[in-house]
């Protein structure tokens, strides 16, 4: 049965961060998820279509680049569901950026860690969570989901993006 990881406000809405949901396609899994948590319907769908603002990843690929709701799922597939960010905030996923390193940057930049694990920076609040790693062939690349909210979100987001810049060869 496919596994679904939920992030940020989706966790508040469902009270869970991970669950297993039946379905042979992305659409079937999301429909079954909505059956179990009706409050997720307006978060995930616009009419019958996947809401523009929601990010649904299958093994690290946005399903919009695959076959959308018709994307077939293997029984062992993992879907990552990211909510839209309210209040002009920014969010995204970074590869090969360990959470401890982001915490190091945030502390170095004057951030303060709160009891719920989020960080406050002047004019912004940063949340992050380890997402399912991107598995490609014999490689596995850790993924970190990061969200920045607040009046100064843009400036801090830019700083995080620069720090997270990586490449390869």
């Amino acid at each position: 049965m496919p596994k679904v990881n939920l992030y940020a406000t989706f966790r508040d809405l469902t009270g869970t961060s991970q669950l297993q949901v039946e379905g042979r396609t992305v659409g079937e899994v999301l429909a079954n998820l909505v059956r179990r948590y009706p409050q997720m319907r307006e978060e995930l769908f616009e009419g019958e279509a996947l809401a523009e603002r929601v990010s649904v990843f299958l093994e690290g690929r946005d399903v919009r680049y695959l076959e959308g709701l018709s994307t077939p799922l293997a029984p062992e597939a993992t879907l990552d569901l990211f909510p839209p960010v309210a209040g002009g905030g920014l969010e995204g996923r970074f590869g090969a950026l360990p959470p401890w390193l982001l915490e190091h940057y945030l502390t170095e930049w004057g951030g303060r860690k709160l009891a719920d694990g989020t960080y406050t920076l002047p004019g912004a609040r940063v949340r992050f969570a380890e997402a399912a790693p991107l598995a490609v062939g014999s490689l596995s690349i850790p993924q970190l989901w990061v969200e920045v909210e607040g009046e100064e979100a843009g400036a801090w987001w830019k700083r995080i993006v620069l720090a997270a810049s990586r490449g390869g060869g």
């Binding site: 690290g60 590869g95 090969a96 991107l134 490609v136 993006v161 810049s165 990586r166």
Partner: peptide, 20 residues
């Protein structure tokens, strides 16, 4: 050349962010 700008880092490996 692949070593001036290794775009497979992003396109395959999701580093620093995943692209299609």
């Amino acid at each position: 050349c692949h070593l001036r700008a290794y775009t497979p880092a992003s396109e395959i490996l999701g580093v620093p962010y995943k692209t299609d």
